Simulated assay, not measured.
Amino acid sequence: MRRPLDESNGFKTVSGDVENPAMQSGVRAATEQRWEDAERFFQIVLQQEPESASAYSNLGNVHLSKGRPELAITDFSRAIALAPTAPVPYLNRALAEEQLGVNAASSGNKAQADQHYQAALRDCRDAQARDAKEFAAYFNEGNVQVRVGQYEAALAAYSRAADLAPGIAGYRLRQAELLFQNARPADADLMMRGVVRKNPNYAEAQVALAAVEWVSGQQSKAEEHFDKAVSLDGRWRKMAFIRQQTRWPPALYDAMEKFLAIAGSS
């Protein structure tokens, strides 16, 4: 999860930058995903205020959104140097490091991927040290722990994030997915049911619950939840789409494949 500097969501500014018209224009452009315009406006801010940590942090978010993790890391590092006590540049730099890890892994360079993942974990922990209630830092840590196969650590991180931000259904779902990975299917089932009950149109939750129920022998319930997900978006029928859209741990993907091999083909 990406965060702007010192704000809760979207591309925002710290209080000292609010009056800057270029910053306001950059925030508006980024919110509308007009990345070229956003980059230009944040560069203008930096010409006017070279020590604006907020501008560097938001510029890093733009570069990350445009698929430029190396440039994003440079921007976030500058923001950290200017605002060393702020947690957000650390957690955002963790996202860029994680993306570089994914890129390296895709190229077959496991050693380099591990280096980036470890850098991401360090940044997550630095963010947590600066604000123990920074829920996105725990969520980001959980994502990276899944990448490196540390599923108990991932469960602990997701659980902390979900407890700090109980209103974010995706956090609780991720916690449930890791419960399943860590051989606690009954707990996963119960938690996923709670997510689905509160968010019936949350297609990923419906699909994940279908997989958990199928392997636990609850076939009719599994088919019911799967049908609900497919009614929301027919692409959930395809395993390739599920892998593309989710960040599940291996055990849940295995369960989903077993479900689709039988029920999904009917």
Rank of each mutant, 00 (worst) to 15 (best):
132 A>K: 10
141 E>F: 00
143 N>S: 03
135 F>R: 07
164 L>N: 09
167 G>I: 03
139 F>W: 15
166 P>T: 04
184 R>M: 07
135 F>N: 04
162 A>I: 02
160 R>N: 15
139 F>S: 01
183 A>W: 10
143 N>M: 13
163 D>W: 05
163 D>A: 07
170 G>F: 08
185 P>T: 01
140 N>Y: 02
151 Y>F: 13
187 D>G: 00
185 P>K: 00
134 E>Y: 09
144 V>I: 05
141 E>K: 13
142 G>H: 09
183 A>V: 11
174 R>W: 15
142 G>M: 08
135 F>A: 05
171 Y>Q: 12
148 V>K: 09
159 S>M: 06
168 I>T: 13
164 L>F: 09
151 Y>T: 05
147 R>F: 00
187 D>Y: 03
140 N>S: 00
158 Y>D: 11
187 D>S: 08
142 G>P: 00
180 F>A: 05
159 S>E: 07
188 A>Q: 02
165 A>S: 14
177 E>T: 14
188 A>H: 02
153 A>Q: 15
150 Q>Y: 06
133 K>F: 11
157 A>E: 10
146 V>Q: 10
138 Y>G: 02
165 A>Q: 13
162 A>S: 06
163 D>R: 14
180 F>L: 08
179 L>M: 12
175 Q>G: 09
146 V>T: 15
148 V>N: 02
184 R>K: 15
164 L>C: 08
138 Y>Q: 01
163 D>N: 01
184 R>L: 04
170 G>Y: 05
172 R>F: 11
138 Y>F: 09
173 L>M: 08
152 E>L: 12
171 Y>V: 09
148 V>Y: 04
131 D>A: 10
155 L>N: 07
139 F>V: 05
166 P>R: 01
131 D>L: 02
131 D>R: 09
150 Q>I: 12
165 A>M: 14
151 Y>H: 14
168 I>S: 12
175 Q>L: 09
136 A>P: 01
143 N>T: 13
142 G>V: 07
156 A>Q: 15
155 L>F: 07
182 N>S: 09
165 A>H: 08
139 F>T: 10
172 R>Q: 08
143 N>D: 04
184 R>F: 03
182 N>L: 05
181 Q>V: 01
178 L>S: 08
152 E>Y: 15
176 A>W: 00
160 R>I: 10
144 V>E: 07
178 L>M: 15
144 V>F: 07
